[in-house]
Write a protein that binds this DNA or RNA. Structure first.
Length: 709
RNA sequence: GCCAAUGUAGCUCAGUGGUAGAGCAACGGUUUCGUAAACCGUCGGUCGCCGGUUCAAUCCCGGCCAUUGGCUCCA
């Protein structure tokens, strides 16, 4: 096994990006040919033990760049400064990260950005003192003792305030591995290094934000305050970094989406995470859908349409309910039939009575407890009344019922059912993020039912479809992630995966072989599979560096069986098909959010919300008539063309069109009209001069048809 | 969901314990102009919502909602 770290994904040249964690897991891969496009890889061996994702191996540490050492050292300096201000602070982990460093600290005082100046002041003192980062190897017993005395991650011994997180960190250090301290001035930290020579080697730094994080990334652990900062070799680089951040913010899809009028999120009337597609944004979605429909029709997919809701039984059968996926689904709506409504009202009335009675009693009395029991029984009684309907969070169960709607023969396979519909997922409020993470999802979804023999070819075809799409959009920076199951989670309280050990092995091997044989680069991530089978996700990064799954391709060997899906094989025996869930364009929301940032709003002609704007110089009637005819011709050819025939000066009209990121501007003045020309101007390319009207229109139609970048 | 910060006009943002401004946008008019902003005027806000303190709250305090930055989770 190898740990994979890679750099420079969505950061500008010269800035080192290290991704240590990948959805909570360290990236593993068994492959040697780890040339992930186009990320640079640094490989290092990994210990046989299940890794703590926070922990780097010694080998990885040895390879830390100068910049990482500066940042890591700066984290220690920050801890030193925080301790000068709040000596009781307890520290957990303080590594360098993609664009800087952080240190997790437990402290009753809530550190806010207002505290940054005084922390930075202390840090400057520590840097000015130019202390040496002194390394010391100590026996484990001494380390434990120093942690208990509060000396680790402290300036002095702190009786009664042991370094509790350092004790936990010590446990993660394998037996036999050297335990080392680093000391700068009074500050001693349990740390494997490496550091710069002296605190004075930290060139320029700045604290950036404060957040919270669970100790060791586990939500059962205490929440710590995570103080983020960044550091560079010198002030120039530090300033360049902040300039870059400002630039990145300008292409944030939320900002551009607002400016260009692509979508709106009306939290008051519609709800958080439920974007409204404005006409211009919807136009992009339509284009994506058109691309998908053309591609999929040619590849033998058939479109189906299904309702947005289904009975509870559907999801109990699929396994999404009662527990596994319940949190991610909107609560059900219930339809009461017959006398159920009456029974419900009676139960409610009784509940009110019970509450009143209970108020008069001592909470711990037997009678109160009995009433409480009755109250709960009534709740569960009500819960059982009526038929529950759920908003669908995925299309697969509906598609399974389509499979079941007719008798199937092996001759029908592979059966590829595609749907362009909306699903609804109840994402946690803190997860919502512009278009990238929403609660209503328009999916380019399909399910392929096939035999084991057909699997490899079908699975490959899906992967090729991704790559074809990515080429069209010029998406080059992505990582394919192959998620497998964790055998220890097939049964028991912590069970996450269907208990079919052999099928897991078989399908995972199939996927791995398919990937290897097709030469696709990927990383393998244990324990991240869907509950019904292994999957491949395509990971990309938003402009502010947040990671997202764009496309997905999943194997399902479990759910078709639960629905009793079968086809009659050649040997006259009924067999269960495999199912491939795939969404090469992910959801429209996320894909478009990504594309907005990818293109910085400057969409290619075929995708541009407003493809052409015709601008007249002045508003004389004959000129306007000439221009109107051009708009009409374009529109009758399905070109999204708008007109600006106002009396504003042409400079102002061009300014408006450029600001709106209109792809092609056709400027028409009296001279053009007389010659049967239009003056062509393309967004970002400036004035391309006068050309015959017919030629320009033909070229526009051609470029759209060919989806030219 | 958790931790923190933020919430002033459609947008970007000033500002104050004595019920608010600017630029852009929008609208009306003047201008008839050749490739990134012509000129004049008008409209526009229960200062996120609810409650508390106060003679008086947009400002201080509390709760809620939403957003942002993270964590956890995911397409």
């Amino acid at each position: 096994m190898q740990v994979v770290r890679f750099s420079t994904l969505r950061t500008p040249p010269g800035f080192d990006l290290t991704i240590q964690r990948f959805n909570g897991s360290t990236i593993h891969s068994t492959v040697q040919r780890l040339k992930l496009c186009p990320a640079t890889l640094i490989l290092g061996p990994m210990s046989a033990e299940k890794p703590n994702p926070e922990r780097k191996t010694l080998d990885e540490r040895a390879k830390m760049s100068e910049l990482e050492r500066i940042r890591h050292s700066c984290a220690h300096v920050m801890a030193t400064a925080i301790l000068r201000l709040w000596p009781e602070a307890q520290f957990a982990a303080g590594p360098p990260v993609e664009n800087g460093f952080y240190y997790d600290v437990d402290l009753p005082h809530r550190i806010s950005p207002e505290d940054f100046p005084k922390i930075e002041e202390e840090m400057k003192k520590e840097i000015k003192a130019n202390h040496i980062f002194e390394k010391k190897i100590v026996p484990r017993e001494q380390a434990i003792q120093d942690a208990q005395s509060g000396r680790l991650g402290g300036l002095t011994e702190r009786p009664g305030n042991p370094s509790k997180f350092k004790i936990g960190n010590l446990e993660d250090i394998p037996e036999g591995e050297a335990i080392s301290y680093y000391q700068n001035g009074d500050f001693i930290d349990l740390c494997a290094g490496p550091h710069v020579m002296r605190t004075g080697n930290i060139g320029a730094f700045k604290l950036t934000s404060v957040a919270s994080a669970y100790y060791k990334g586990d939500e059962r652990n205490p929440q710590l305050q995570r103080i983020y900062g960044t550091a560079f070799k010198n002030k120039t680089e530090l300033e360049a970094y902040f300039t870059m951040l400002e630039e990145a913010k300008k292409r944030d899809h939320r900002k551009i989406g607002q400016e260009m009028g692509l979508f709106a999120i009306d939290t008051e009337y519609v709800g958080p995470g439920l974007p409204l597609w404005l006409p211009k944004g919807a136009a992009i979605a339509e284009e994506l859908e058109k691309l998908a429909k053309e591609t999929e029709f040619a590849a033998g997919y058939r479109i189906v349409k299904t309702p947005h809701i289904a009975k509870e039984k559907m999801y109990l059968t699929s396994g999404h309910l009662p527990i596994l996926y319940a949190e991610s689904m909107f609560p059900p709506m219930r339809l009461l039939e017959g006398d159920e409504e009456k029974r419900e009202q009676e139960a409610f009335a009784r509940m009110v009575d019970i509450r009143e009675l209970k108020k008069k009693l001592d909470e711990n009395s037997t009678e109160a407890k009995e009433l409480e029991k009755n109250f709960r029984r009534l709740i569960s009684e009500i819960d059982l009344l009526g038929t529950k309907y759920y908003l669908k969070a995925m299309n697969c169960p509906h598609h399974h019922r389509i499979f079941a709607a007719e008798p199937r023969s092996y001759r029908d396979l592979p059966l590829r059912l595609a749907e362009y519909g909306t699903c609804y997922r109840y994402e946690q409020s803190g997860e919502l993020f512009g278009l990238m993470r929403v609660r209503s999802l328009n999916m380019n979804d399909a399910h392929i039912y096939c035999t084991t023999e057909q699997f490899a070819q079908e699975f490959n075809a899906v992967n090729e479809m991704y790559l074809k799409y990515f080429k069209i959009f010029g998406i080059e920076k992505y990582v394919m992630r192959f998620s497998t199951h964790d055998p220890s989670r097939l049964t028991g309280d912590n069970a996450k995966f269907v208990n079919e050990p052999e099928l897991w092995k078989k399908t995972e091997d199939m996927v791995r072989d398919t990937l290897k044989n097709s030469g696709i680069n990927y990383v393998e991530v244990p324990n991240e599979a869907a509950f019904y089978g292994p999957k491949i996700d395509v990971q990309v990064w938003s402009v502010i560096g947040r990671e997202f799954t764009l496309a997905t391709n999943q194997v399902d060997f479990a759910v078709p069986k639960r629905f009793g899906l079968v086809y009659r094989d050649k040997d006259n025996i009924d067999k269960t098909p495999l199912c491939i869930h795939r969404a090469p364009l992910g959801t429209h929301e996320r894909f478009i959010g990504f594309l907005i940032e990818h293109y910085a709003g400057n969409f290619p002609l075929w995708l541009a919300p407003e493809q052409v704007r015709v601008l007249t110089i002045g508003d004389e009637a004959p000129l306007v008539d000439y221009a109107k005819a051009i708009v009409k011709e374009l529109r009758s050819n399905m070109v999204r063309a708008e007109a600006d025939f106002t009396t504003n000066p042409i400079k102002a009209k061009i300014q408006d069109a450029e600001t709106a990121k209109v792809h092609t501007m056709l400027v028409i003045g009296p001279r053009d009209m007389q010659a049967g020309n239009v003056s062509l101007r393309v967004h970002g390319k400036g004035n391309l001069g006068a050309k015959p009207k017919a030629d320009v229109i033909a070229e526009i139609l051609c470029a759209i048809k060919e989806r030219r970048g």
